[in-house]
Structures are given as C-alpha cells and as structure tokens.
Design a protein around this nucleic acid. Structure first.
Length: 497
RNA sequence: GGCCCCAUCGUCUAGCCCGGCCUAGGACGCGGCCCUCUCAAGGCCGAGACAGGGGUUCGAAUCCCCUUGGGGCUACCA
C-alpha cells in the first residue's frame, strides 16, 4: 500500500440504489475538480451497505455515467487501488476491527436497550418537552448486568461514548468557516447495529481515514454529523480530514430536486441529447463562478481555476432553461468543429421516438448528418431534432392546428400549392437554389409575395410553421417526397369543409 | 422543541473577508427593435435585486444584533 504523502485525496461515495443523480454528480464534480487542480487523487467508493436496495446493475450504470461526464477516478471498485476494497460490503472486517478498538479503549460500549425502550425514552422526553438525548443507561453496565441481558437473548448495539468534558467541538469548514458545536446537544450514538453492521457515521469515518482522504467535500446535511465524527476521530487517535460542506441543489420550486420539476438522473440528460461538457460546465456555475462576466469554460480551464474557497454557501436552483441555453452554445460549436458528435447526441432521441431502429448504418448516419446540417443551430439539445425535424424521418406528416389555421385556410392555397407542385415536377434535381428560383419566379409571375408560397409549402412539407429554411429542407427531402407531400396536402385542403 | 447552516434581479451569480470606486456588474429567461421565407441563431435597447428592522460609522449590499423566510441534523437511514 503506497499513498504519496501530502498529496490531496478526495472521494465521492455513491450508493448504488439508483442511477447517478445530478446532485450527486455535481458534488462528485467538485471533489474531482479539486483533486485534479491539486494534482491529487480522486476515488470512487461504493456505499452499498443498504443491501436490499443496492444492485450491481446500478453500480455499473453509475460508473458509466461518470465516464460519460468525463469524470474519471484513480481508484475505485472496478480498478482497485492501494486502499481497497472500494465497496463497503467488502470492508466489514475493518469496521469490526475498529469497533473492537473503540470498545477496548473504553471509547464505545455495548448497549442492550431495545427499540421499544428507546422509543419510550423518546416519548417521555417529548411529553416533558425536553430535547431528547439517550439516557446512557448502558454506559456503565457491570459484567453481571451484561450477562443478564445476554441471557435474555438481547443482542447489543455499540454506542460511541461522547466525551463528557464539555469541550466545544470546532469544525473548520473550508467554505463555511469556523462552526462550533456544544457537545451538550450530542448523545452517545449507535455506530454498530445489533446485527453487527456498521452505521453510516461510523463506516464513513473508518473509510475516510483508512483510505487516507485529505479533503471531504459533501452535502450540507452532513455538517451536523461532523461533530459526532470528530469525536470518533479523536477516540481513535486519528486526524480528521479537511471538510467543505456544500448546500444542496434545489428544484425550481425551491424544494429538493425531484422528478416533479425535471429530470434528476444524469442518464436522463444523456438520453435527451445533452452534451457532457455542457452539463459539467453548468454544474460549475452552481455555487462557483470562476471569474466575473463569463460562463463558458472548458474542463481544462475549470481545473486550472478551481479554488475551494471560491465555493458559494447558498443553495442553487437547477435552472433547466439555462442548461439548455448552455448546451446550445456547445452544440453550435460542435456543429462547426465536430458535427459527428452532434449527430451522436441526436441518435437516442430519434430511437426513443421510434423514428430510428436497430443498427445505424453509415448511410443513415450520413442522412442524419445532413438533417443536422439543415437544422443547424436550432438544435440546442439532441432531442430538438424531433421538435424541428421529425418530418425528415417519417412521411406521416401531421399538420399543426395553428399552422392549418394560419396558412391552409385561404381560398387559393390549394391552387398555389398545385402550381408549385407542377413546377417542381418539371425539374429532375432539386437543390436549394433551384427551389428558390422556382418559388421566386412563381411569385413574381403570380404577382404575389414569395412568403405566400413559402409558408403554406412549409406546412405541407413539415406540418409546422417553424423550422429550417424552406429551400434547404426541400432539397434534403428530395423531389419525390416533396411532390408526394404537396399532393397529400392539396388533397387534404380540398377535403376541408 | 433543541442545535446547525443559508439569504443580492424570476434563476445562476459578481461585489461582502479588507466598509466609500455600487446611481449594485454579467449571464439565462422575459419585453421591444433590427436581420429575415417561419423558427432558431446573431446584433441593439429595456424592465428587473441588496428579505425586514435596529445598531456601529462621516459613510454599509459589505461589520454587529434581532426578526422573518428557507434548508439540515436530532434514526439500530445515507
């Protein structure tokens, strides 16, 4: 086991009970950024002690989502490392060992109180309107008393003896500053269940120490737990890591981020066609602004500029609208530099909409590439290929009610479209310039505005009022499809009451 | 209930630590105009905030206190 002295080590510890949550990814991102900025090590540790809800499937999915985000780890369950294993269920021997150490030095003790007895204590405290603290009944049991409880078949838990010297516990939080806790409000808490399994506050301390973590960036919900953990560090004779507590991301309703106000899994964003670099850039802007008056940063820049002290304390709201804008910025960049990746982001949405199935052939890919070119910067997120260009993938064009009302209601529309159809039928190759000249000359011959042809034609071809330029989309659709769609539209309009 | 954290435009935030440069800056979104075959993008313009109250000070968004409002911990959850 070799861990470089003085090197920063951070970690993220997901529970494999679901897909990677954006809140978790956000938290992991800052741990990762800090480690990378410091030339340190970033570790993934799987907290799978909740055996009923944890699955290997989720663990794999979480690692996959991290990879997709571009957040890599130096040590973890899949690749091992000097302080493994990296799954808590595989570290029980360590928890047992340190629980015993605590017991041996009298810093912890067996507690034989039953759930019912504890509940009764709690009730009494509530009835008397006193803050509840464990009574400490089992603090100083004699061997005889213990033997008696054992005889009764009671299985003990292990409690940590909170120091009763009354000394204030100081947490020097890297983002919040000095926070003081009066141990008066703490009580001896359970670190090992009666079935022998470790509780979070215990396993966490053992893991963070044995894994040699130097800095722990975690959610604000852990700040109140910190003094308890500090006591344990002291009891074990260990130095605690540096900590930084970040407020949690909120939904637009200012409540904890939930499905109600938007997608919560990183995977959902991937499926919708968001770009990992945009997501990560967006993450950074919640609680951290590298510098004034700028919001677009490459990962490289973020790593360079990251400073723990610059992290904000308030709870940010996850603003989907801004994320979408930011994704658009990256998408536009991709359209110029690496259109194939833009195409990639459109694949999932197309599949989910049932407009694409099976293996994507090179030919299909090339076609999608053309669609993406035509749609251009209208695609802010992969799924926009559907909102603006579904008609490129299906002949079943449905006319939007508003579009019908606006452009199909005029008397002579069918005639105009029929005219256009005839003129289109006369050429054998349709390209954008050809269509444009057809439309323009037709307009001047009929002494009407080009838009009087363009708008109805767009609806006929796409079903929509908004979308790419008519000439470009017509060219991509090709003569045959255009004629067919013009025919059906004319037919459709003539059947109107 | 007890303890802890937080509080600048609707949202992300700069400024706050080290009071005056702040008639509080930027971005998203919103409104208007321009460009234009529609939409998107782009350009220009605009509306929009220091939670409230007390102090301290010549002077407070910045320091202190209280209140209010959010959030968290208080489990044999993580």
């Amino acid at each position: 086991m070799s861990i470089p002295i003085g090197k920063v080590r951070t970690r993220y510890a997901p529970s494999p009970t679901g897909y990677l949550h954006v809140g978790g990814a956000w938290m992991a991102f800052f741990n990762w950024l800090f480690a990378r900025n410091q030339g340190g090590t970033f570790i993934l540790r799987v907290e799978d002690t909740d055996r009923s809800r944890s699955t290997e499937e989720y663990e794999r999915a979480i690692l996959e989502d991290f990879r997709w985000l571009g957040i890599d780890w130096d040590e973890g369950p899949d690749k091992g490392g000097p302080v493994g294993p990296y799954r808590q269920t595989e570290r029980f021997h360590l928890y047992r060992q340190y629980a015993q150490a605590l017991l041996d030095r009298g810093a912890a003790y067996h507690c034989y109180c039953t759930l019912e007895e504890l509940e009764a204590e709690r009730q009494r405290a509530r009835a008397a309107k006193r803050p509840y603290r464990y009574s400490g009944r089992c603090r100083n049991l004699t061997p005889e008393q213990r033997a008696e409880f054992e005889r009764q078949g009671r299985r003990p838990t292990i409690r940590l003896r909170v120091h009763d010297d009354g000394e204030t516990i100081v947490v020097n939080d890297l983002v919040r500053g000095r926070v003081e806790f009066d141990p008066e409000h703490l009580d001896d808490y359970i670190i090992v269940r009666s079935d022998g399994s470790p509780l979070y506050n215990f396993a966490n301390v053992v893991d963070d120490h044995t894994m040699a973590m130097t800095h722990v960036i975690r959610g604000i919900e852990h700040l109140s737990n910190t003094p308890k953990q500090w006591i344990m560090y002291r009891s074990l004779g260990w130095d605690p890591p540096q900590v930084a507590h970040l407020s949690n991301i909120l939904g637009t309703d200012h409540k904890k981020l939930s499905k109600r106000t938007g997608d919560t899994a990183v995977r959902d964003y991937k499926r919708a066609g968001f770009l990992p670099e945009a997501l990560v850039n967006f993450f950074a802007l919640m609680a951290w602004y590298p510098e004034e008056n700028r919001e677009i940063y490459s990962v490289r820049e973020m790593i360079e500029k990251f400073r723990l002290e610059d992290l904000g304390k308030a709870s940010p709201v996850f603003d989907m609208t801004k994320l979408t804008w930011m994704n658009g910025v990256y998408m536009r960049e991709l359209l110029r530099r690496d259109p194939d990746r833009a195409v990639e982001a459109c694949l999932e949405p197309l599949r989910n909409a049932g407009l694409l199935d099976g293996q994507v052939t090179a030919e299909t890919r090339a076609y999608i590439r053309q669609v993406v070119d035509v749609l251009g910067d209208r695609i802010k997120v992969g799924r926009d290929i559907l909102t603006y260009g579904d008609f490129f993938f299906t002949d079943a064009v449905t006319y939007e009610p508003d579009a019908v009302k606006k452009y199909f209601s005029r008397k002579d529309v069918a005639t105009t479209l029929a005219q256009l159809r005839e003129r289109v039928a006369k050429v054998d190759r349709l390209d954008a310039t050809t269509v444009e000249s057809i439309v323009r000359t037709m307009a001047s011959e009929l002494r009407i505005e080009s838009r009087e042809i363009i708008h109805p034609a767009r609806v006929a071809l796409t079903g929509k009022t908004a979308g790419p330029g008519l000439f470009e989309l017509t060219a991509l659709l090709g003569r045959d499809r255009v004629i067919k769609r013009l025919d059906s539209a004319i037919d459709w309009i003539r059947r109107l009451p």
